[in-house]
Write a protein that binds this DNA or RNA. Structure first.
Length: 507
DNA sequence: GCGATCAGCT
DNA sequence: CACAGCTGATCGC
């Protein structure tokens, strides 16, 4: 998920970082956005999913500690007005916007004039002149969310939402992880950071809008699982500089899932941009030569766990814990089935480590076997088994790791196993205890089924993110951020943007 | 009828 | 909580 922090150190929008943030974390005094402000212009021209700025459903629970409560509710919108120097529409509109069932786009709700339909729908190349405006279509909120809504005067069908500005790389014809917006105007190269649904969403076999640049591993998955025409898929090696449309592009290992990359752009004017996609930051990543020389002008930052409450141990420690626990249970009950939950890709190192330590093969279903073999990792491939009786180590979809399911699964294995020990590796499995001492993790047991949630994360923890900012970017564009974290950087203000269809459950 | 998208769920 | 999906319903062609 993504929110946006905006702040361009080189525009008049820049404000001093100070105590002048109001209760909502926005600048107390609104900047007067100059008509020529490139960032604000880009913002409006490229469009955004405004739906997430709507108030949360009234039944939404608020955090107990109250810290994020500040960001909830109508004040967010008020401060966006202030922050961008937009005049608030008169009377009544705010209520409509903030009421739970509202589906209207905020341009309509606030009475802001939206650019002409084509531009709004398709985005405009960054750096183009200010667009003209026209009355926004007057369509009530009966349409689906995440659309501009309604049909045009001729009754033509609706177009997808515009590609949000934070997926466009300024001064280039590039977008990152932007496949659900159709053809993005001015985009001649579409980058895919990694093969997870919330990033490749919109890619179907009908894709014809331009070349897709990604790592070789991701390229294989895109072709194999999404049936994308090979002519559109352009694999790039890690740590190799390519020149694409006059821009130097380098992929770096993202330490997320197989095939995930950070994308480093060096423009001909000397500006350097880094898009992290999803990543788990580390010291060694930071020591990469490309992050050591010069300053990153613009950092697009994955901030999934950008809250001090998220503290997870190094992955190696969690893996060590999982292996030790598995060994302990097997010693007690040799006929224990070890289950590891995983999404389509990711978490491989957890079950690979168990496989190596116990010297057993990895069983998983045919579709996952096909995916895992496509990685081209000999150490993994040689351990994959297609016989569920021959191995006490099974990989199942994360969603299936529930007591009832696992009990039934055990029964289907026909007495070969007498108990199940399952691991759910996810960053959301955090607790004060587990953050410090893995051995304090308490499993959930029911009958013969034991389930451990383990804090194995493929995203950065708060402190890892904080440390990563020592790359010292001039500006950060991100999806969800806490002001305190950026006190040393020239960040101005932020708001939240949802990435997925259900993302507007937060604000 | 089919593929794409969406709400709800975990 | 909501990772990264998954399922079933609905929409548009």
């Amino acid at each position: 998920m993504v929110a946006a922090i905006a702040g361009d150190a080189e525009t008049d929008l820049t404000l001093p970082i100070s105590d002048d943030l109001d209760d909502n974390g926005f600048p107390a005094s609104p900047p007067t956005a100059p008509a020529t402000s490139s960032f604000a212009d880009d913002f409006y021209r490229s469009g955004i999913d405004w739906s997430s700025l709507q108030a949360p459903p009234s039944h939404r629970r608020r955090p107990a500690d109250g810290t994020t409560e500040k960001f909830c509710g109508p004040l967010v919108q008020k401060n966006l007005f202030q922050a961008w120097g937009i005049e608030k529409p008169a009377s009544g509109m705010t209520e409509k916007v903030c009421g739970p069932p509202v589906q209207k786009n905020l341009f309509q709700a606030w009475g802001i004039q939206k650019p002409p339909r084509e531009e709004a729908a398709q985005g405009v190349p960054v750096g183009a002149g200010a667009s003209s405006s026209s009355p926004s279509p007057s369509v009530a909120g009966s349409g689906r969310k995440r659309r501009w809504g309604g049909s045009d005067e001729n009754g033509a069908s609706r177009k997808p939402v515009a590609c949000p500005f934070y997926k466009q790389i300024p001064g280039t014809p590039f977008t990152v992880d932007a496949f659900r917006y159709g053809a993005v105007e001015g985009c001649s190269a579409y980058f895919l950071s990694h093969f997870h649904y919330d990033h490749y969403g919109g890619l179907t076999k009908k894709w014809c809008h331009g070349p897709i640049y990604c790592t070789a591993l991701t390229a294989r998955l895109v072709k194999m699982l999404l049936s994308i025409d090979s002519a559109y898929v352009c694999p790039l090696e890690l740590d190799t500089e390519y020149v694409i449309d006059g821009v130097k592009v380098t992929f770096l290992e993202a330490n997320h899932c197989p095939g995930a990359a950070l994308i480093h752009f060096r423009l001909s004017d000397g500006k350097t941009y880094l898009h992290t996609g999803d990543f788990r930051a580390s010291k060694s990543m930071q020591l990469h030569p490309l992050l050591q020389t010069g300053r990153i002008s613009l950092l697009y930052l994955d901030t999934t766990y950008c809250n001090p409450k998220y503290k997870f141990p190094p992955q190696e420690d969690v893996i060590d814990f999982v292996v030790r626990t598995a060994q302990r249970y097997l010693k007690k009950q040799p006929k224990t089935l070890i289950v590891v939950g995983a999404y389509s890709i990711g978490k491989e190192n957890v079950y690979l480590a168990i496989s190596q330590a116990l010297e057993v093969p990895i069983y998983t279903d045919a579709s996952r076997r096909r995916i895992l073999h496509s990685f081209g990792w000999p150490d993994l491939s040689k351990r994959i088994s297609s016989c569920n009786q021959s191995s006490p180590l099974h990989v199942l979809p994360l969603a299936s790791l529930q007591h009832e399911n696992l009990k039934k699964y055990l029964e289907t294995l026909d007495q070969r196993f007498l108990a199940v020990l399952a691991f759910r590796p996810t960053g959301w499995t955090f607790s004060e205890a587990a953050g410090k001492e893995l051995d304090l993790i308490k499993p959930s047991s029911r009958g013969r089924v034991t389930i451990y949630g383990v804090p194995y994360s493929e995203h950065s923890s708060f402190s890892e993110l904080r440390d990563f900012l020592k790359v010292n970017p001039q500006t950060v564009v991100t999806l969800l951020v806490f002001a305190a974290m950026f006190s040393n950087h020239r960040i101005i203000f932020f708001w939240l943007v949802s990435e997925t269809s259900k993302g507007n459950s937060h604000c």
